[in-house]
Design a protein around this nucleic acid. Structure first.
Lengths: 132, 132
DNA sequence: TTATAATTAGTAATCGTTATTAATACTAAT
DNA sequence: ATTAGTATTAATAACGATTACTAATTATAA
């Protein structure tokens, strides 16, 4: 873990990271807040947001936004693609290969420097197809 | 234009649509508000939001969200990809071919019904590379 | 025209997120 | 150990984009 000098790994920050690393459910800040409260009952919501921001800066986690009014967070910082169910709003990791040359392709074609890309699919998940 | 029975094309709605169709700059609701005010000075911001929502529902426009706290809107409802400059926050249309079979591919591989996908690239745009 | 319901302007409320502040707790140097 | 310095915290207030509400207006079809 790349530790910037001066940063401390507090029990709050560790708990937030642990919660995020232990799920693949792309939780919201509020869900993380509730989970961390089970470990540190008087943790503050502001602490959740501040640390999520710091952990993102550190490259430990990713922030996702899928057209909702709120963000979701992903404990896996390595690029991967997502499927979003427009019915139940579940976000599912996709196990498909990354287009690893596409950034360079776009860069050459356009002249913009491309650092990363994101790809998302929208539709109805397997579960939601059952209950129709 | 697919017109749902009961919906009216008011001058406000028409103005909002005109403003959006006449730019490729992916404006915010607030920018659209300022532009429409030049035509209808006492138009309300709530009217902007309500109509953007309705026009999106009608398939006339698209709503974009790029990790900001606000949405951007696109007068071109046909799927296309975007480049977002992380320095100046400009959003640029990309003239690259759509992966038109990828939705089916993911659908078959996962069992989820895939209706659409979005692909975005992030980096430093041509303009911002100059002023370093 | 007229009746009906969609739409509007204006404004208040909502809600996710961010900023503020005084208190706390690491960390390193004495 | 004791201190000084500073990152971090809990609690709470503030913020800003968006949405909801309401009475008045206006497009549309009969």
């Amino acid at each position: 873990m790349a530790k910037k000098p001066g940063t401390r790994m507090t029990k709050q920050r560790q708990a937030i990271l642990d919660v995020l690393k232990s799920t693949t459910s792309h939780p919201t800040a509020d869900w993380i807040y509730e989970e961390v409260r089970k470990i540190i009952p008087n943790v503050s919501l502001g602490t959740i947001y501040r640390n999520l921001s710091i952990l993102k800066e550190m490259g430990e986690i990713m922030e996702l936004d899928f057209g909702s009014t709120y963000s979701r967070f992903d404990g896996n910082p390595v690029n991967h693609y997502h499927f979003c169910c427009t019915k139940c709003n579940q976000v599912i990791d996709l196990d498909i290969d990354i287009f690893d040359t596409i950034d360079q392709d776009v860069s050459q074609a356009t002249g913009h420097i491309v650092n990363r890309h994101r790809l998302e699919f929208y539709g109805i998940c397997k579960d939601c197809q059952k209950d129709d």
